[in-house]
Design a binder for these strands. Sequence first.
DNA 1: GACCCGATCCTAGCACCGCTAGACAATCGA
DNA 2: TCGATTGTCTAGCGGTGCTAGGATCGGGTC
Lengths: 192, 192
Amino acid sequence: MSVQERKQRERAERERLIVATARELAEQQGWDAVTTRRLAERIEYSQPVLYSHFRGKREIIGAVALEGAAEMATALRAAASVADGPRARVTALARTYLDFAARNPAVYDAMFQLDGGLAFAKEETPQPLKDAFAALLDSLGEVAGDGVHPGRFTEVFWAALHGLATLTRAGRMPPEDTEQRVELLVDRLAVL
Amino acid sequence: MSVQERKQRERAERERLIVATARELAEQQGWDAVTTRRLAERIEYSQPVLYSHFRGKREIIGAVALEGAAEMATALRAAASVADGPRARVTALARTYLDFAARNPAVYDAMFQLDGGLAFAKEETPQPLKDAFAALLDSLGEVAGDGVHPGRFTEVFWAALHGLATLTRAGRMPPEDTEQRVELLVDRLAVL
DNA sequence: GACCCGATCCTAGCACCGCTAGACAATCGA
DNA sequence: TCGATTGTCTAGCGGTGCTAGGATCGGGTC
């Protein structure tokens, strides 16, 4: 059995390598540059090997998205836990979210802009995605205000953050005033 | 001179045909289906003809985006003009924006998701884009609140709308509660 | 009215894409 | 040691955006 176990380990290791390489390449040169040929060359295997791990390019994007969601959830919870008081917590949350999007644009795209074949807002939604949303909900629920459904409030706040993240990065909005936009958002949206 | 004028007219007419066909095809089957070959076939010319009008596919997307921006600006101004009172005006504006995005998903993508090679938030930004933003600014500036820069307020409000539009359409957010999200957004963000 | 020449358009092809069939080699179990 | 299974590769399919170069058509001039 030990031989099979070793092979399984090596296979899992290679799968991690594929995802990590795809992510790295995407961050360096954008997702357009992540072709199956280039990816195969970088991991030093032939193209069809990719298809023994993933159904296609979409699934590779999906894997990067899940990895990113887990990281984002961790970052959000960490930021929320060190801040004291609802206001500081929400502000830290918003800053952390936008910071993550700015520092990991390709991962952010995999999560929210590209088609990674993942289900959202459904029962079959993968756990990391649910958890990232839950991380937002945990901090935002307490500032939703009376009579406002916490989930709905979180959706709206999240949408605003997502809009700021994408429009800024796509050059639709000057990047300098991000901090002031965050303050405005927190001041107005949250009930403190 | 009349012959040249006729030719110019025909050329301009064909250019409109290209843009309209690209838009139609994109709305019917998504932008992935808008290939230069299919587009050429639909307008009943050969592929290279497209390149005598546009530098490439990007510029065609950009042309659709500009057309869409002009329409959106018109729709926003129309909605704002019939509502009386700041609150009704802002609500109508938000609804109209989201409605436009939902009814013209491909055009909306051309404007804000895809790369149409257009400049944003700069001096050389094409007029229709500036005008669409101005349409938002006209109605939103009056509810920015004291001491808040109207442009910045508009950016934040716009980002929230953009987030709602894209996340809803991409299935990241259940579409049923849109109206309640709009109300929450207007209630909290606008100073009435 | 005939001819030339420039504008216009098309055929054919480039390099690349995602993905897959089928040949081949290495490894395992009997 | 041999057969079967597993794993990997080469080669190729139909598609993409884009372009070079030849054919054709029509207006302007003699």
